[in-house]
Design a protein around this nucleic acid. Sequence first.
RNA 1: GGCGUCGUGGCCGAGUGGCUUAGGCACAGGUCUGCAAAACCUGCUACAGCGGUUCGAUUCCGCUCGACGCCUCCA
Length: 495
Amino acid sequence: MHLYQSNEIKIYNSLTGQKEIFKPINAGHVGMYVCGPTVYSNVHLGNVRTFMSFDMVFRYLKHLGYKVRYVRNITDAGHLENDADVGEDKITKKARLEQIEPMEVVQRYTVDFHNILNTLNFLPPSIEPTATGHIIEQIELIRTIVENGFAYVVNGSVYFDVHKFNESHAYGKLSKRKLEDLIHNTRALDGQSDKKNPQDFALWKKAEPQHIMRWPSPWSDGFPGWHLECTAMSTKYLGEQFDIHGGGMDLKFPHHECEIAQNEAAKGKSPVNYWMHANMLELNGQRMSKTTGNTVNPHELLSGENAFFSKAFAPGVIRFFSAQSSYRSILDLTDAGLLASEKGFNKLMEGMRLLQSVGTANTSSFDVSSWQQRCYDAMNDDFNTPILIATLFEAVKYLNQIKEGSASITAKDLQVLKTTMHAFVYDVLGLEATSEASTNANNDKLASAVNILIELRQDARINKDFALSDKIRDELAEAGIQLKDSKDGTTFSLS
RNA sequence: GGCGUCGUGGCCGAGUGGCUUAGGCACAGGUCUGCAAAACCUGCUACAGCGGUUCGAUUCCGCUCGACGCCUCCA
């Protein structure tokens, strides 16, 4: 008996605009594809939020016992500066600017991307394919689309014929656009486009002589179009139709719209059953933008070396902050918000510690099994992590009451509580007390030193030498060590 | 201009046609303490505006105002 058999998930499907009961194509198995980063610079923090949302989706599906194949690609070629057919490949441009090989650019930022995700406690996807590793598949796909009459060749480049496609299919059904509206609203191209219509998009681009990233094809030496890689790689590893496709809201049009068109043109099938789109991340109420300087990269957020935030924030705090809002809402990153999340996160982690130390009784004054069900209900409702967190805090409050003696729990219920808290806090939300884990190596020596000071202070307090005891307390505080007095003695924590 | 999303208490941020409350932070009072801090307990307030549907709307519908995203590079 797997958990997924008793937990019916509802997913908000961007394609239909409503929450739908999730039914995987193959019972017990889930195929999920998420558009990964274009590795031409440090990964965008907003992109990290998107991946974090899907990391939690991945984790929950796994927790329920699904066998999940999670594919998240690396775009290392083909993402043009613009779609107007005259743009430069982003990787190539960066390589030219830095005077290094394109693959050096790719390597550098792929490593950076993985570092950030590891630091933030992401689970690696099942497969992480690259665009350049699937040139053959992409060429085959183009060939099929051309044969089916939905693409045309001009001067060695191949373009998808959106108008032709729209005669027999619905181009724009995901983003709720009509082709005629697009025609009226597309800016006229200035100059030498090979496209029949501005709405057409490149499947294959002939490379200019100086272009380093190039592969042979039936049409020219060139490189594949950006939209094509996701179609090639998703269907290669997940099948012509698969369960979940995710990505940032900004990719809905044109990227995902083009994916649907490509797959329908090539295979005659709409590729995805459930489209999920994560909303944008803002910084202080404004969109992040490199051009206006209103941007922070993940390193700067983690290190505190930036102009926006008062301190460094631990990975767990960032995850907690993200999970406190729904993946479908715009999330505004602010100093006050992060500070509030830090306190909340610490409170939750304190609750996790209480699980180990709290005493049991003959009766429980709290309905643990209905609480447990509400945790599942929250996640089953379109992965509602804010509700899950609110429910987890009910348990924290309960644990504190047990500690204070105003509530009680049986050993059996405590076991359920412990298992469930661990499952949701660690496995599903991916939270870890990383700030402590990272200092553990030094903790033993530090602890013995601080404990000596605590003893000295205790002696001073017994002697009513409060000047000395306060001096020890205050100077430790300045050094980032906070003493906590309680009935059972004094402990400390690092701030 | 087109398409889409949204407007919740001091702040962030869920949710719902009435029933019992989101939750976190902040704030106030209390417990504890030599005093603090920390921790804990208790309290606190809301649904942009105007109409409509309804026995009843923050929740549904319409309009107004405002914010944001995509439509052109920025995730």
